[in-house]
């Protein structure tokens, strides 16, 4: 379904599903962080600011603290994300905040995720002779074990992204949440468990396309986007540029 059509009918697109369900991890009065290479979490944080009737602190890798950016930048580390900020909270600051236990929620990228919520962002194949050299450690190895909650996203839901065995454990500690175009997982008793699935998918499809075993107790179709969530996303991406760039398909 196209972005325009999904916005009229109130149904999910793959894009709106990921951004909105990332935003739903944001909680009142918490400190929430989004970083580099993270256009979807950046949109999620900005969406949460508009759509939800509560206050939270949004900090980002450009140094912004509850900024008022004049535009939504293509690069999620663009200095525009510090416009209107009352402080510049530089890179060392937010890492230190995290390691001393005060980062409530941070969004971290991952190429592969396993059933424990550990991540690989280093390589496909052997580290010393990789088939694909990936971006690398980044925030993960330090933030994943020290943030109160970390959440990641994958634009492809498949057995090569949601794996039984990681090619390399870049970061352990375990994700609190994972969002894909067809599913939302949250951690339960140390493992990722299915929280809900895209209403156009099914539990069987999620199981079929996931490389690790998971509990689906209490899981059901994801509640549709609220009018506030839809309005916020439409205002952040009025021309559908981010939706096109993200290129997210259900299948």
């Amino acid at each position: 379904m196209s972005e325009a059509a999904s916005n009229v009918t109130g149904a999910w697109s793959g894009f709106s599903y990921i951004v909105t369900n990332l935003a739903r991890f944001v909680r009142p009065n918490e400190i929430t962080f989004s970083g580099v290479n993270s256009a979807l979490p950046m949109l999620a944080c900005l969406l949460a600011k508009q759509a939800y009737p509560f206050a939270f602190t949004y900090i980002n890798v450009a140094g912004g603290v509850d900024p008022n950016p004049s535009e939504v930048p293509i690069s999620s580390s663009d200095p525009v994300l510090a416009e209107g900020s009352r402080a510049i909270f530089a890179n060392e600051d937010f890492y230190d905040l995290c390691t001393r236990g005060l980062m409530d929620l941070c969004f971290l990228g991952a190429a592969q995720v396993d059933g424990l919520g550990r991540t690989n962002v280093s390589c496909i194949g052997d580290w010393h002779a990789p088939r694909v050299r990936l971006p690398g450690g980044g925030g993960g190895a330090v933030m994943l074990p020290t943030a109160r909650r970390a959440v990641t996203w994958r634009t492809e839901h498949s057995r090569r992204t949601l794996v039984e065995t990681l090619d390399f454990v870049t970061a352990a500690g375990g994700m609190h949440g994972v969002v894909t175009p067809i599913a939302v997982f949250t951690k339960r008793e140390g493992r990722l468990a299915l929280a809900s699935w895209h209403p156009e998918a099914s539990l069987d499809e999620v199981r079929d396309r996931t490389g690790f075993a998971f509990s689906a107790e209490d899981a059901g179709p994801t509640p549709p986007p609220t009018p506030e969530e839809r309005a916020a996303l439409a205002s952040l991406d009025p021309a559908g540029r981010f939706a096109v760039d993200a290129g997210i398909r259900l299948r």
Partner: peptide
Amino acid sequence: PCGGIHGSDLAAL
């Protein structure tokens, strides 16, 4: 000293 890292293959590497 650096916080975190526990459980990461980067340490042994």
